[in-house]
Amino acid sequence: MVAPADISPTSDSQKLARARQIDARRKRNTRLYLLLPGLVIIGLFGLMPLSITLVYSFLKPGSYGGVEWVFSLDAYVQFFVERDIFDDTLSPNWAYISIFSRSIGLSFGATLGALILGFPTAYYIASKPAHQRNFWLFLITLPFWTNLLIRTYAMLIIIRDQGVINLALMNAGIIDKPISILYTDTAVFIGLIYSYLPFMVLPLYASLEKLDLRLIEAAYDLYASRFKVLTKIILPLAKPGIVAGCILVFIPGLGAYITPELLGGGKKLMIGNLIAIQFGSSRNWPFGSAAALILMAVVMLALLLYVRHGAKGARHG
């Protein structure tokens, strides 16, 4: 694209074309220099680690953590099947499959729970006058920016056996023994909804805010009931927001570490804890890497779904 230097510009139009070319090249260079530091640091310390993980997942574990540089598919095999130590027969490894399916189930359940709570909330906020909306949004977003660990700890204090809920119920004479919620799937489920509810409300709000009131009015004119208006008009119009919100809750829920760690008490493992343990006490880095990649594959699938169906909705953030 660069013009040979020996051609001297003769006409004004040629001079102009030349100047434009130089300008375009300068802009291109500036852009490159501006992007370089960010891209290099994310590339080196954000993307490259992932390729290391890929490599590690095909190696053998070292005895004291780390890896031994011997090719092996054990990590992946171990995830799905178990080799009998006596007769070498293979059987499905239910331990890991159940952790994985529990993670998907809990995360999916929490997504539904967050949708059931988040949709009415987002709708209510969208129906408020403009100045109140911002305040409500601020209140919903604020917990998201505060420490997840601390919020989970706050939840732990409330739902444990000696927590406020149980004490209040016992004082009121409704129950005489505390209901044990902590260290159960229910606790993790509640914790996940509590953690990621703001992720649901924000994209829902963004698509509900644009709702055309005339459509609702038309439906009422045609004798639709409130429920019919909700299911036939509002919900279909909010679909991009619903998909976006569900993805934004499902993905972090699936990879959750803190919530099951504190509220599941290390007994009700999710995939995030399983991965972390491999790099800690279990010292099986290849297996942890393989589990991480399997988790990432599920996440990518969910993201693909989002791009296909929900990307037209509001972008979060």
Binding site: L50, I251, L254
Partner: peptide, 9 residues
């Protein structure tokens, strides 16, 4: 990318 994956990577 899930934070736990970034962390172990």
């Amino acid at each position: 990318i899930p934070e736990i994956v970034t962390a172990i990577a």
